[in-house]
Design a protein around this nucleic acid. Sequence first.
DNA 1: TCCTATATACACCGGGCTGTGTACGTAACG
DNA 2: CGTTACGTACACAGCCCGGTGTATATAGGA
Lengths: 210, 210
Amino acid sequence: MEKGPLGRRRGRGARERILSASQQLFRDQGINRTGMDQLCAAAQVSKRTAYQHFTSKDELVAEYLRRFDPDVMPGVFDRTDLTPRERLLAAFEMPASTPLCPYIAAAVELHDPQHPASQYARDYKTAIAARLTETAREAGATNPEQLGEQLALLIDGASARTRVLNGDSFPTAAAIAAVLIDNAIPAPSPRQPSDDRGTTGSAPVPVGGQ
Amino acid sequence: MEKGPLGRRRGRGARERILSASQQLFRDQGINRTGMDQLCAAAQVSKRTAYQHFTSKDELVAEYLRRFDPDVMPGVFDRTDLTPRERLLAAFEMPASTPLCPYIAAAVELHDPQHPASQYARDYKTAIAARLTETAREAGATNPEQLGEQLALLIDGASARTRVLNGDSFPTAAAIAAVLIDNAIPAPSPRQPSDDRGTTGSAPVPVGGQ
DNA sequence: TCCTATATACACCGGGCTGTGTACGTAACG
DNA sequence: CGTTACGTACACAGCCCGGTGTATATAGGA
């Protein structure tokens, strides 16, 4: 394989190559501005093969977004070396080159709440907020749901603003997050958690209503 | 005029009708999903006339966005019946049906930082932040620039999130804003009726800069 | 080895899009 | 009235896009 003289073949991983190319192109150019021809060329896949794996571009877009589901903010919520509070703040340590959240981009580009991709977007946003809420509860917040929703809003705001302004807005969001977190956690030391590694069970964990 | 038997004429205000129809259609359907044919039909303008007023769709889009400039948050910053603090909070009292900020939408849809529309978007975002900063200074914030930028981020976050989740996120943003404003103003004046939103108590925690 | 699933090249279709050419009305204003 | 700028109707060019038909080649398991 690999460039034979006649009809070179790139192997069987066509589907993976398509999805991989989708990630890059949809991120760099947007969904609507990426044609199937260009996508297939980038994936080194014939157009026919692409349409054997995905019956339509819409389906490909949906699968492209579904791929982000399993790893909801990987390497942030699963870091056991950080206290819950530090994990909440770590969610805002994004490189300045971070592209706009693909779910927001898709929801705006597709502009159809009925599109499966828009459904995935809602699910993902809900999942992120749930993760934040869960961590907020571990951190001992009096109202974890509220704090989780607030932090989720900050992330989206920073993401959108970074895109429009061509500048990093995550530090601003992180500063807000620090204020909110400090205000939402009742008793702990107002000092920085420099070495206070009390694991997760140290907080009293009051039951939040609602 | 007005529907003559042959070649009915809609009068001379073609340009205005085009821009008016643009506002509605671009907001409801997005820019890319609105063709010039449909737009001209909605504006009751012949396609030829449209292209005599705007040399291209891109130019129409740019003009469509430029129209928002003069009224940067009208009826919010100019309300003299409110204290500066109340004016800052009033910026978050948006109806749940408020569409996504057209500048964010355009920046995402066009996906080209060089497009004039993207330039307008940056200018507008900067103007909003400046207005907020100015009002924050009037309200006596210790760091008006920081507060203005923070509030601007909240607005964008609420706008984006409202779009994706199909639900109103502005109350959440308003709650955050209330906390930030309280924390940023050193000597809170007990003048106006303090409308404490559902947030945690007014514990004056010093603002933690990034 | 054969068989089947997978992949390929390539032409093509229908449709929608932006944008134009042309010939023709008509409103406003001197 | 006559001139002129504005508006209209309609067809069409040219392009790109999503999606398909067809015939062919290859990899890998049985």
